[in-house]
Design a protein around this nucleic acid. Structure first.
Length: 261
DNA sequence: ATGCCGGGCGAAGCCCGA
């Protein structure tokens, strides 16, 4: 069994205690983290290693930053999304989790928000998604267990947000964004949570403002996409809302899936 | 409500997030 989770931690410095505690209680084997807001030098590697995790990071000062923690060795680590040498945002890292036949390749994604749309940020989001599709297509040719998890900043369907009217025209729901997300999934991926759950209005992010958490005004934007070889092994997937309710919480909460060995 | 909160940076107030 391989338990893989994704969590936009919104600063690893502030959230380190929450993350280490969640790793202990969830017993996740692999955690994909986004918005670490930490340089490689400042990342609290020793704390993860002391907790029994290998750690690989792609950091950046102030913004973005992604990292992979894994109980199993991480091999063949690749940093940055191919396709644009001028892109200096730290939004992608991937590695192979060496757990023998029960292993998998994992990609950790912090997809650009893209607001305001239209504008340069929206253009960057769409271009980044085009690059992600190209990279995912290349990865798919390996025909191995692959999990592309992260903060996709995409609300896949209206039922994945609390108020579709409020989100109309937003970069998270724009037809151009959703079409690209569908194109990605249609390469052969299974969106793990939706594959196992039919409920509407289940979320992974709640804004800090306006009592969004208390009113359950959220959106489901953190996703785990599984290649056919990973989907064959999918036994369970869920969103753990507990961390979001804690004091000094990230505005996102962990999403996890379990793959049979 | 295209920023009400929260984090980074850096030491006041702006940039950014979704």
């Amino acid at each position: 069994m391989l338990k893989i989770a994704t969590w936009n931690v919104n600063s690893i410095k502030v959230r380190l205690g929450h993350v280490l505690e969640w790793l202990e209680t969830s017993e996740a084997d692999v955690l994909l983290m986004q918005e670490t807001k930490s340089t490689d030098e400042n990342f609290p590697r020793l704390e993860f290693e002391a907790a029994g995790y290998n750690i690989e990071v792609h950091g950046q000062r102030t913004y973005n930053g992604v990292a992979i923690a894994s109980k199993y060795p991480l091999e063949d680590v690749r940093v940055g999304l191919p396709g644009d040498p001028d892109d200096d945002h730290a939004r992608y890292i991937e590695a192979r989790v060496d757990a023998g036949d029960g292993g998998a390749r994992v990609g950790c994604i912090y997809l650009p928000n893209g607001n305001p749309s239209d504008g340069p940020k929206f253009d960057y989001k769409l271009a980044w998604m085009d690059r992600l599709e190209a990279h995912a297509k290349a990865l798919m040719t390996a025909e191995e267990a692959l999990v592309l998890g992260g903060d996709y900043n995409i609300i896949p369907a209206d039922e994945d947000c609390y108020d579709p009217a409020r989100w109309e025209g937003d970069a998270l729901t724009r037809p151009e964004s959703r079409a690209r997300f569908r194109r990605l999934v249609n390469l052969g991926f299974t969106e793990a949570w939706r594959a196992l759950h039919e409920q509407a209005h289940v979320y992974s992010f709640w804004d800090y403002q306006a009592g969004a958490w208390q009113k359950d005004n959220g959106v489901r934007i953190d996703h785990l996409l599984l290649s056919p070889q990973a989907a064959d092994r999918l036994t369970d997937c869920d969103i753990d809302k507990i961390p979001r309710g804690r004091p000094k919480a990230s505005d996102h909460t962990p999403v996890w899936c379990s793959l049979a060995a």
